[in-house]
């Protein structure tokens, strides 16, 4: 599983610290981007193995990033795990409708995030 590249799109520095730490501990390579537009550019250019995506981001929001990703046929099967404080049923439904692979609400347990990334990033 080592060497799988995860793009972490999150704008809260202290959450980024923890997520980067646990994902690296689990053997993933982690790139961090805190802005929606840059995240989309990075997905297209770098083709990570999975994306962990916050919704409330500066610039383009997470839903728009996901929509753009799913609009690109080459990225249709890219695992995108939505990780958000917006945990209302309609937020979840929206994420599912536009093609989120999984949906995790904040606050999360570290183990939950690792298990989810492992199961979707592939081996």
């Amino acid at each position: 599983m080592a060497g799988k590249r995860i793009l972490l799109v999150e704008d809260e520095p202290n959450i980024v610290e923890s997520l980067r730490f646990i994902l690296e501990q689990a053997g993933f390579e982690v790139d961090v981007i805190s802005d929606g537009n840059a995240a989309l550019a990075s997905v297209i250019a770098d083709r990570p193995d999975a994306v962990v995506l916050d919704i409330m981001l500066p610039g383009m929001n997470g839903f728009d990033v996901l929509r753009a990703v799913r609009g690109d046929t080459k990225l249709a099967s890219l695992p995108v795990i939505v990780l958000t404080a917006k945990g209302q049923p309609n937020d979840r439904k929206m994420a599912e409708t536009i093609g989120a692979t999984a949906f995790i609400t904040k606050p999360f347990s570290n183990a939950e995030v690792i298990e989810c990334v492992r199961s979707h990033a592939g081996s």
Partner: peptide, 21 residues
């Protein structure tokens, strides 16, 4: 509410790391 959730998330995740690593 969003700021509180973000802080709680950061604290919770960091505490798990401190306790479980």
């Amino acid at each position: 509410v969003h700021r509180m959730l973000s802080s709680v998330t950061a604290i919770h995740s960091a505490a798990e790391i401190l306790q479980g690593t």
